[in-house]
Computed example of a mutant assay.
Amino acid sequence: MDKQDERTKAKKHIDIAQKAGAEKVLVIPGFFSEQEAKQLAPCVGSYEKTADFLNGNEKALGWQRA
């Protein structure tokens, strides 16, 4: 993915966070694989669904323990 595509994608995430009422956004480049990101995407509008996804993802759990 080229840099402009990355910027466009990042802007979409920031817009979603703003729409959801988030005051801050934490960017972690490359944290999830493309497949994991696709699994997470449908959860974004729901705190509970996002929490369930993160609590079931080994990378996220490892980050939490660090």
Rank of each mutant, 00 (worst) to 15 (best):
E34Q: 05
A22Q: 00
A10L: 15
N55Q: 10
V25F: 02
I14Q: 12
D15W: 10
S46G: 02
A66W: 11
I14K: 12
K24L: 05
A37M: 11
P42V: 04
T8P: 00
R7G: 08
A20L: 15
D5S: 15
A22V: 00
E34V: 08
I16Y: 04
R65N: 07
K3D: 14
K12N: 12
K24F: 05
Q64D: 10
Q18S: 12
E34K: 07
A10M: 13
T8E: 13
I28L: 15
D15I: 04
A60H: 05
D5H: 11
K24P: 03
C43W: 03
R7S: 13
G30R: 03
A20S: 11
I28W: 09
E23C: 00
Q4F: 12
D2W: 03
Y47E: 09
V44N: 04
Q4D: 10
G21C: 04
V44I: 09
A51I: 12
S33N: 06
I16C: 05
E6W: 05
K12V: 13
A60K: 00
K24W: 00
F32Y: 07
P29D: 09
K9T: 15
F53C: 06
G21H: 01
P29W: 02
D2P: 08
C43Y: 07
N55Y: 01
A10I: 14
K19M: 11
D2S: 06
Q39L: 11
E23T: 13
V27F: 07
I16D: 02
G62D: 07
L40V: 07
G45N: 04
K11C: 06
P29I: 02
A66I: 14
C43T: 15
L61H: 02
I14F: 11
Q35W: 00
G45D: 02
V25W: 00
C43P: 04
L26D: 09
F31L: 00
I28A: 13
G56D: 04
A22H: 13
Y47T: 15
K59Q: 10
L26S: 08
K12R: 15
W63R: 09
Q64I: 12
K24G: 03
E58Q: 10
A41R: 14
A66T: 11
V25T: 08
D52M: 11
I14W: 10
N55T: 04
V44T: 06
K11D: 14
T50C: 02
A51L: 14
N55W: 03
W63C: 01
M1L: 14
W63K: 08
Q4W: 08
V27Y: 02
F31G: 03
R7K: 15
K38N: 02
S33W: 03
K49M: 10
L54V: 12
K19C: 12
A10D: 13
T8H: 09
F32W: 05
D15C: 12
A60D: 06
K9W: 13
N55F: 04
S33M: 06
I28V: 11
W63Q: 11
Q18K: 13
T50Y: 03
I14S: 07
D5F: 08
G45Q: 06
A51S: 08
H13I: 00
V27G: 05
I16G: 00
E23L: 05
L54W: 10
L26E: 09
D5P: 01
K3E: 14
K11V: 13
T8S: 11
R7A: 14
